[in-house]
Design a protein around this nucleic acid. Structure first.
Length: 575
RNA sequence: CGGAGCGUAGCGCAGCUUGGUAGCGCAUCUGCUUUGGGAGCAGAGGGUCGUAGGUUCAAAUCCUAUCGCUCCGACCA
């Protein structure tokens, strides 16, 4: 590509609405253009990277015996009504009607669509297993799109779906796809961790699910990680043991104590000169299961946080949310002074976290304005004593089986694989004849990669103060060829080199623009192609040499013009 | 949806408090000079100040409504 013929504009200034490096750099380097909230045009330079990521994924999926197809982005509402997700998806799914008043939606995912084509095509166990995938646009009307391509509303996703007669077969294909995913991200040059994840609404209880997380400080997800045991899990899923809790053993009776206007754990404990772990945090949630709504009081050690996923799973709730201030008041709770003793609410569910030592003494809210209790001992003073694992894992916890410490990392979820079981095949009444001629419900797995998110994640992980540092496999081009000089002779010479590189199938951007050297170097660094080839009129007249710079290391190689393509090829192979 | 903030040229911003000719930097265009780290000089184009009402002789500025965008929370590839 010659830049004098290119649709490409870079920017010195960072757009004010871009918060994280990948978003800022993609905007500044002219890779994407914002069209609306969470909606982006992939500009020519950026789209090349998207296509390269797609291609790597495509090759690895094909190698894992998957077949590519393409499903429509608009799908009929009746499919979603059949699976029950028309209502469950809520506002995330953008729905509308066609001119015949039929319900339609922009597909946020495609379990229904793929299951439908499967059930109408496959009738025999002999045709299983089979795995279908597509690389397609998804639309999710995220409540809060942000961070550019990291969480767009419209985005490109590779989604794959496997079908099986039995669990061992599902396990086998799941393992194959797991390896295919590792290959994908390895080929893309990303540092990633595979973590145990929470299936959420997607999967049944005994099924496996893993997330592929690109390690990056700006990641939205937290990963609990233990280097010694190799344990890695999303914080939502992580099961750990609390460390360093010393119970407060006393026989002293529970007593009211004035805590005027101290409403937070921090304030109360500072005021009473108590460790936060020797107080109990009281949280009130509403949990909706089917038609039933329950109010739940959760008690945690003062310096622990609630894992809502765990609570939701424990309660088998369809929907879980903390009570808003006005709901608390309405339900008779005094915000800031809520506690487990002296409650008058009917049908209240009270649960203590497992880390709460029931014989230890705690400071708790007294359910009276400006009052707390001291020396509340659950086993002695509480009327409800149910316990469950509800706390959010944190830095310094121990692994569940005992002794090793875990730490917290941040990650960007670029891939997620699930064993769906029979959730969708059952919902959509899929029947396959097994070898006894009996009808059976097949099992499914599903496997997603956020293609456009991968591009953002790659930049999060590979950039410096000057710009992007693309891994070679997903860089828009491999070489940025900058001509420094304007003499017609040197221009003609540079053009010859450019032609030759092209003939050698080297992906090269030729900066033949009539701008200063600094301008070209800045653009080259910003765009971040792995190699920069520089033909400088001044130096070339002196020694007849060109330079190749490695973007990542800054290493410079002096070469003769005729060595250019060979050297570039060997450097690319070594990167 | 709850909380916070911002809408003025393609981008980054000033002007608004105290109403009175719409400005600066970058980018873009023209000419000359310049070519190893975002060049210099001279000139040029580009804005119904988000939108709609209202107050006023007069509104970017004050008031009301509305839309859009961004950030913090529950969602997710």
């Amino acid at each position: 590509m010659k830049l004098t013929r290119a649709f490409w504009q870079t920017y010195k200034e960072t757009p004010s609405d871009a918060e994280i490096p990948s978003h800022q750099l993609m905007m500044r380097a002219g890779l994407i253009h914002k069209v609306g909230a969470g909606l982006y045009t992939y500009l020519p330079m950026g789209y090349r990277t998207i296509r390269k990521i797609e291609q790597i994924v495509r090759e690895e999926m094909d190698r894992a015996n998957c077949q590519e197809l393409l499903m429509p982005m608009v799908t009929p509402g009746e499919l979603w009504q059949e699976s029950g997700r028309w209502d469950k998806m809520g506002a995330l799914m953008l729905t509308f009607k066609d001119k015949g008043e039929r319900d339609l939606c922009l597909s946020p995912t495609n379990e229904e669509t793929v299951t439908d084509v499967f059930r109408k095509t496959i009738k025999s166990y002999k045709d299983l297993p089979v795995t279908l995938y597509q690389i397609n646009t998804k639309f999710r009307d995220e409540i809060r799109p942000r961070f550019g391509l990291m969480r767009g509303r419209e985005f490109t996703m590779k989604d794959a779906y496997s079908f099986h007669m039995d669990k061992p077969c599902l396990d086998q294909v799941y393992a194959d796809l797991y390896r295919a995913y590792e290959n994908c991200f390895r080929r893309m040059g990303l540092e990633f961790t595979v973590v145990e994840a929470d299936g959420g609404a997607m999967a049944s209880a005994d099924s496996q699910t893993h997330e592929f997380q690109v390690v990056a400080d700006s990641g939205e997800d937290q990963i609990i990680y233990c280097a010694e045991t190799g344990y890695a899990a999303n914080i939502e899923k992580a099961r750990t043991k609390r460390a360093d809790f010393k119970p407060l053993m006393t026989q002293a009776p529970m007593k009211e104590i004035a805590t005027p206007d101290r409403k937070t754990i921090e304030d109360v404990c500072t005021y009473l000169k108590t460790e936060q772990a020797h107080s109990l945090k009281s949280l009130v949630y509403k949990a909706i299961t089917g038609q039933v709504e329950k109010t739940v009081l959760v008690l945690l050690l003062g310096d622990d946080s609630l894992n809502e996923i765990k609570l939701s799973a424990y309660l088998k709730a369809d929907h879980l949310a903390p009570l808003a201030d006005h709901e608390l008041t309405k339900a008779g709770f005094l915000k800031g002074f809520i506690g487990p003793h002296g409650l008058t609410q009917k049908d209240l569910v009270v649960i203590y976290d497992q880390a709460v030592a029931m014989d230890s003494a705690f400071v708790v809210g007294a359910n009276k304005t400006d009052l707390h209790f001291e020396n509340f001992i659950p086993n002695r003073d509480a009327s409800y004593k149910d316990q469950a694992d509800l706390r959010l894992a944190k830095e310094g916890d121990l692994t569940i089986e005992g002794s090793k410490k875990v730490s917290v990392r941040r990650g960007i979820e670029v891939g997620h694989i699930f064993q769906l079981g029979d959730k969708y095949t059952k919902a959509l009444s899929v029947k396959i004849l097994d070898k006894n001629g009996k009808q059976a419900v097949p099992l499914m797995g599903c496997y997603g990669i956020g293609i456009t998110r991968v591009a953002a994640a790659a930049i999060e992980q590979n950039h410096d103060e000057k710009g992007i540092i693309w891994p070679a496999s997903i860089a828009p081009y491999h070489v940025y060829f900058a001509l420094i000089g304007k003499d017609p002779e040197i221009l003609a010479f540079a053009d010859k080199i450019y032609q030759e590189l092209q003939e050698q199938k080297i992906e090269v951007v030729f900066d033949d623009r009539n701008v200063g050297p600094g301008f070209k170097f800045k653009d080259a660094d910003l765009l971040g192609l792995p190699l920069q080839l520089v033909l400088g009129e001044r130096d070339f007249k002196e020694d007849g040499m060109l330079e190749i710079r490695e973007r990542k290391s800054g290493l410079v190689h002096k070469i003769k013009p005729e060595e250019a393509s060979a050297k570039i090829k060997s450097l690319l192979a070594s990167l």
